[in-house]
Design a protein around this nucleic acid. Structure first.
Length: 294
DNA sequence: TATCAGGGTCGTT
DNA sequence: AACGACCCTGAT
């Protein structure tokens, strides 16, 4: 197991890590991989983001190389958050591998801009559903649609002790495929998901009746896993790649979206043969391009 | 107020 | 392989 950080301190409701490198809370949550975390305004820390993942509300604060996870104890840290935040990944080695596969100046630049990005290990169903919603949509609306979906069909979480960390008194889990099946496609329409309603419903149906098997997708190589996901109506190569990258930990998945097309066009960037960690390279390029457009 | 575009995909040529 | 349609809304 890779060294997580120099020191870890556990309290009843928080975990503090010191000496963490390649970890930028702002970049992690602003690079468009997770839609349920928001910046905590008026935080006592330099940066703090709060949100729900794996059925729990937490916030992640950062001051320099010190990270604090609020709302987590030692058991949660080892069972959930160490993996979720990829704290066991050898980022230096991964970055060396990426840069050894391509000497494109734009990539080395973007890898510096996005130095602190980590690919979060999100729940597979949540990732699938979220990136179905993301198609032909903008990030603010994607976030508000997902919030509405969770408030309507998710389970309430008592987050009253996290109010000072950006939580509402009640937060909601991401709804299961079973819940979405039971609710029906009309509920998804009411939430104004538009033409995506039938796609979300089809995905839920296929997961519930076993036509989509997450364990088979996990076991399959990325190209085959993508074909399995593409059986779902409304899932093409891009949504499948995002699902595999963020929900199944397949770091070689390389989502090609409008921003990456732009990078390929503008810089003559060649995305072929980026290696086993192409997905992180994609996040570097995506993040750098979007930051520049602001 | 009007128009464009948004982390794409589908159905039709 | 190319092209328009698609729900709705954030941005200009």
């Amino acid at each position: 197991m890779q060294t997580i950080s120099d020191k870890i301190y556990f309290n009843k409701q928080s975990v503090r890590l010191r000496g963490v490198d390649f970890f930028d809370v702002c970049a992690i949550f602003e690079c468009g991989q997770a839609f349920r975390f928001d910046k905590v305004e008026g935080s006592a820390h330099a940066v703090e983001y709060g949100g729900v993942a794996h059925g729990r509300y937490i916030s992640l604060a950062q001051d320099g190389d010190e990270i604090i996870i609020y709302g987590a104890d030692e058991a949660d840290f080892y069972n959930i958050w160490r993996g979720y935040f990829a704290l066991d990944a050898d980022m230096a080695a991964i970055r060396r591998d990426i840069l050894a596969h391509s000497d494109a100046p734009r990539l080395s630049y973007a890898a510096e801009v996005g130095r602190g990005i980590r690919i979060l290990r999100q729940d597979a169903w949540e990732a699938l559903c979220s990136f179905i919603i993301s198609q032909n949509n903008n990030i603010p609306r994607i976030k508000s649609l997902i919030r509405a979906l969770c408030e309507r069909l998710g389970e309430p979480i008592d987050a009253s002790d996290m109010l000072s960390h950006g939580a509402r008194a009640t937060e909601y889990t991401f709804p299961t495929p079973e819940t979405i099946c039971a609710a029906g496609v009309d509920v998804l329409r009411e939430l104004k998901t538009g033409f995506r309603a039938k796609y979300i419903y089809d995905a839920a149906r296929r997961v519930c009746d076993g036509r989509i098997s997450f364990s088979e997708i996990y076991a399959a190589p990325t190209a085959e896993a993508s074909k399995m996901l593409e059986e779902i109506s409304g899932v093409g190569p891009k949504v499948a790649a995002c699902t595999l990258l963020f929900g199944f930990g397949k770091l070689d998945a390389f989502p090609v979206d409008v921003w990456i097309r732009r990078v390929i066009e503008k810089y003559g960037f060649d995305p072929a043969a980026l290696g086993d960690f192409a997905g992180l390279a994609q996040q570097y390029l995506f993040y750098a391009e979007r930051e520049e457009s602001k």
